[in-house]
């Protein structure tokens, strides 16, 4: 036997180690790039934001530790209060997209000629960017020339300046947001309706269920997965609302259309000064609100995983 070249031996034992542990090691090799990116840009910044919220920092100079001061200041900040209430309105009224989407889906769930084109045209608003939706709706609401007031004028009503009115403006923006969101929910329900078990419908018909009772007791329970997803995306959409507000009113009139996400941006990055710490504190509040929902979503996903 000749002596084995040590490098070859090392290579062999290395390959051997990988071969022996292939099943255990491979997933981590596959996961590494995604985890690196995600931790670097998403997980770590969450921690950093929470940390920054305890500091007074203009983004350039030295940060000064102030403890809970930022949060204490939030308590007395009337603009923060307005934003919080507006977020609540968004959460509540944005959910109208779910019954709205179901309604349109039921309306379109037929097999007449050309229905496919109708379905995709009804879905169309979802593909538009929120910036474009915002522009379109702000022209729709124009105080004198807008289409809304032209139509109201025909019925002898109006004119109303939706986006100029502190109480109406938020609802006007939510209505604009509902347009693409309803389209999204519609497509979810159309897919759901496609998968409804025809035998159960037949059985229901034999038992004399019709119309509303059929919908409520037989159809809606079967649409549960679609409803869950519609709920998730609508809640997230409501709490993320930023684009529409920025384009349509820029927070006005008198700051009455601000929501937390917008107010945070204003505090941290706009002409009102660079208060990173205060902005981060607002973001943390928004994050905590979202965390309630995230926990719920994860919990329901988890129980479904276990049920499998």
């Amino acid at each position: 036997m000749t002596a084995i070249d040590p490098t070859i031996a090392a290579a062999k034992s290395q390959r051997g180690w990988y071969k022996r542990n292939e099943i255990a090691v491979t997933p981590w090799l596959f996961l590494a790039p995604a985890i690196l990116f995600f931790v670097f840009y998403v997980v770590w910044p969450i921690y950093q934001s929470i940390a920054i919220s305890f500091y007074d920092w203009d983004g350039l100079g030295e940060a000064r530790f102030v403890g809970m001061d930022n949060y204490a200041e939030l308590m007395d900040d009337s603009a923060f209060e307005v934003s919080l209430w507006n977020n609540l309105k968004w959460l509540l009224f944005y959910l109208l997209a779910i019954p709205g989407g179901l309604f349109i889906a039921l309306f379109l769930n037929q097999t007449v000629t050309g229905i496919r084109i109708y379905k995709s045209l009804f879905f169309f608003p979802f593909v538009l960017s929120q910036v474009v939706v915002g522009l379109v709706f702000s022209w729709f609401y124009l105080p004198n020339e807008g289409l809304l007031n032209t139509v109201l004028g025909v019925f002898g009503m109006g004119p109303i300046n939706v986006l100029g009115d502190p109480t109406l403006a938020t609802y006007g923006i939510i209505a604009a947001g509902l347009w693409p969101q309803t389209a999204y929910c519609m497509i979810l329900y159309l897919t759901g309706l496609n998968a409804v078990d025809p035998e159960q419908i037949e059985a229901g018909r034999l038992d004399g269920a019709k119309g509303w009772r059929m919908l409520w007791f037989i159809i809606i329970p079967q649409l549960k997965p679609a409803t869950f997803i519609a709920f998730v995306v609508t809640i997230i959409g409501a709490l993320r609302s930023f684009d529409l507000i920025s384009v349509m009113t820029n927070g006005g009139p008198f700051g009455q259309t601000r929501v937390l996400s917008f107010y945070m941006f204003e505090k941290a990055l706009s002409e009102y000064g660079f208060r990173m710490g205060y902005g981060a504190a607002i973001a943390v509040v928004l994050f905590l609100i979202m965390l309630v929902f995230i926990a719920y979503f994860l919990w329901s996903m988890w129980s479904e995983e276990r049920g499998r």
């Binding site: 934001s49 902005g279 973001a283 995230i294």
Partner: peptide
């Protein structure tokens, strides 16, 4: 699902 705003300042 995280709101973008909590990432904004650090990112």
């Amino acid at each position: 699902f995280v709101p973008f705003q909590i990432l904004m300042v650090p990112v």
